[in-house]
């Protein structure tokens, strides 16, 4: 069953298109990673899905309803980001209590256990938390609410590595126990690899890729070989990324389906796997050469 369905969704912000004719759909009970560079439209998309913002055109359906102004979607979805500010005079325990009042599937035990595990003090206020602690607390809200659609926008911002890992483990465990549809946008794709089932890659408000994680891992290969041979052989094929790997040596990343690996081996090239996060970076590169081009 499709829980989220977008068709030709465009969002204008001023004259700029934050989302541009975006179409995709997400099945029930999956964890999707929303990947993209800064300004790719990740936050815009999540806020539209959460019903906070309104799409300019196109059709958005969450749980078969248009999310904007839908009470049903609001009750069954939650959008968590690092600007998730709570009223400053409510302490953390009171915020949890409010969450419990609002969300029908709220899991109090989980909320309290996580609250204690991450050493929050009940009387603390949200505003006084450090950035990482605040993100942790927001994630606890997102986990405990157990909404059918849970949208995390950079949920781990400011967390240290250890907490990030723990948080992802919690997320996975709770997901297994109580399956739901989760979208996570993050910069750190490597850490998410084991968690995600699908990846939706955005660039400039457009969909670039929407693949299962396993396919993304196999999406591209890196080839290292003598420059002339490599360039000759790759003529006419899309080179996702290339850089010098030594004197007369070139490293190039290409789509796996474009080439034949045995042939590459035969030509004496070294074949290396390309991590999914590198793939995402290469695909959304602003032209060949990346930032180095600025200094050329």
């Amino acid at each position: 069953m499709e829980v989220i369905h977008c068709e030709n969704v465009t969002k204008l912000q001023g004259k700029a298109k934050a989302l541009d004719q975006l179409s995709f759909s997400i099945k029930e009970n999956t964890i999707t990673g929303l990947i993209g560079r800064n300004g790719a439209g990740k936050t815009t998309l999540l806020k539209i899905l959460g019903g906070l913002w309104r799409e300019t055109s196109g059709e958005v359906k969450v749980l078969s309803r248009r999310p904007f102004n839908s009470l049903y979607v609001s009750e069954n979805s939650i959008y968590i980001d690092d600007a998730f500010h709570f009223p400053s005079h409510l302490n953390l325990k009171e915020i949890l209590r409010e969450g419990e009042r609002f969300y029908p599937n709220w899991n109090r035990t989980l909320a309290e256990r996580l609250f204690d595990y991450f050493e929050f003090h009940p009387k603390q206020t949200h505003a006084n938390l450090s950035k990482g602690k605040r993100s942790t607390f927001n994630m606890i809200i997102g986990l405990a609410s157990r909404c059918k659609v849970t949208l995390y926008d950079e949920p781990t911002a400011g967390m240290d590595r250890a907490v990030r890992k723990e948080m992802y483990r919690v997320l996975l465990k709770d997901y297994l126990e109580y399956p739901r549809t989760i979208i996570i946008s993050s910069h750190y794709l490597e850490e998410l690899e084991d968690l995600l089932e699908d990846v939706l890659l955005l660039d400039n408000g457009k969909k670039v890729l929407h693949l299962p994680m396993d396919e993304l891992k196999e999406f591209a290969v890196g080839l290292t070989g003598r420059s002339e041979v490599l360039l000759q052989w790759l003529r006419g094929k899309t080179i996702l990324h290339q850089q010098n790997a030594g004197p007369n040596e070139l490293y190039a990343v290409v789509k796996k389906e474009d080439i034949s690996l045995p042939e590459a081996q035969r030509l004496g090239m070294t074949i290396s796997p390309v991590s999914s996060s590198d793939v995402c970076v290469y695909i959304t590169d602003r032209g060949q050469g990346g930032i180095d081009r600025v200094f050329r």
Binding site: G51, L52, N69, S70, L71, S74, E75, F84, H85, F86, P87, E98, G99, F102, Y103
Partner: peptide, 13 residues
């Protein structure tokens, strides 16, 4: 308003 719209809401409610 931001504080108000943290939890379940729509504009009518």
């Amino acid at each position: 308003r931001d504080n108000e719209y943290l939890f379940v809401f729509n504009r009518l409610s």
